[in-house]
């Protein structure tokens, strides 16, 4: 193989010889690595596949490789027969910020970037203030997708708007176009654990975030594929977020499940900035008969500020 003028036949022969050489080495390739591990003596209890509790040496544990991620073209198509929708019940929110923390943790987003923001809102001088969490609205007429010059941000058949960070050129036109200010930019190299940084980027998990590209809430389609709820939904102890499928006409926050159309009709659900024609996939239930006082959230706000 070293010689430049080696013919194809020579190449094949050398290759065969090389593989024979490996086969004859004293290391048996058919024995998995973990059988050569020196035992640590420390035992861990595990639940086996048939329901028995077994004890295993700690040294034998090894990280399970991730389930294979869907391919980029699959991630661009989305999940067939679904139309994801979110309902945010403003009467239940007290600005606990658990959704934000869970989201940042799951996506390895720094605190300064916050894909979920909880806005203190007051619509008019004499109207009552309330807390309004905002995610990406996953608009059906997404202004960000319209302006993207390279198809790095795209709309899928299941209604989710995602970002391909391997393609984004960082022009930030989508950030200017989004009226909900939902998008954040990786101004510097994101600080990520090494194993996350080494991963291949997936549009569905939105990790790892990359320097010089745009990030935002992705509605956690990887969780949806596993049949689980987005991180913000399961993290909220007050059940503010409902997630579901428009075609099934149901939304759930985990403990409670509602018929989507009933919920929106009975509680007068609405969407943000309807007049812009963006057609968001996130609906809000008005802050009536509230579970908490607005002021409760202010304390949390101050605590969060003093921490940072």
């Amino acid at each position: 193989m070293e010689k430049k003028d080696t013919s194809r036949r020579d190449f094949l022969i050398t290759g065969l010889l090389a593989s024979v050489a490996v086969g004859c080495s004293d290391k048996n390739p058919f024995v998995a690595d973990d059988q050569q591990v020196t035992l640590s003596g420390e035992k861990v209890k595990l639940l086996s596949a048939d329901g028995e509790i077994i004890e295993i040496d700690k040294a034998l544990l090894k990280p399970v490789p991730d389930l294979p991620q869907v391919s980029n073209s699959e991630a661009r198509k989305g999940i067939a027969g679904k139309k994801f929708v979110m309902v945010i019940d403003l009467s239940r929110c007290k600005n606990l910020k658990k959704c934000q923390q869970a989201c940042n943790h799951a996506h390895f987003v720094e605190d300064a970037q916050n894909w979920i923001k909880i806005h203190p809102m007051q619509d008019a001088e004499h109207s009552a203030p309330y807390w309004q969490p905002t995610t990406c609205m996953h608009c059906d007429e997404p202004p960000c997708v319209k302006v993207c010059p390279v198809d790095a941000t795209f709309k899928r058949q299941d209604g989710i708007v995602l970002i391909d960070s391997d393609r984004c050129v960082g022009c930030r036109f989508c950030m200017a176009a989004c009226p909900y200010s939902t998008r954040v930019f990786n101004w510097e190299k994101p600080e990520l654990p090494i194993e996350i940084e080494k991963k291949h980027y997936s549009c569905e998990t939105s990790i790892p975030q990359k320097k010089g590209t745009v990030g935002k809430c992705d509605f956690c389609p990887d969780m949806a594929r596993k049949g689980e709820l987005p991180h913000c939904v399961s993290a909220c102890p007050n059940g503010v977020f409902f997630f579901g499928d428009m075609y099934e006409d149901s939304v759930t926050n985990g403990p409670e499940t509602f018929r989507f159309s009933d919920l929106i009709r009975d509680k007068a659900g609405y969407r943000l900035m309807e007049d812009l024609g963006t057609k968001p996939s996130v609906y809000y239930l008005p802050p009536v008969n509230r579970n908490f006082k607005f002021e409760d959230g202010l304390k949390i706000e101050e605590e969060a500020k003093s921490k940072s």
């Binding site: 319209k146 010059p149 390279v150 198809d151 790095a152 050129v169 960082g170 930030r172 320097k211």
Partner: peptide, 26 residues
Amino acid sequence: VDMGRPERLVNLFAHGRLQSPIMWDV
């Protein structure tokens, strides 16, 4: 200079979408 990933400039030609006003500008 304003681009976050100037090395991906080629994407404008490889994946360009004519509906974006940036492409009109290009």
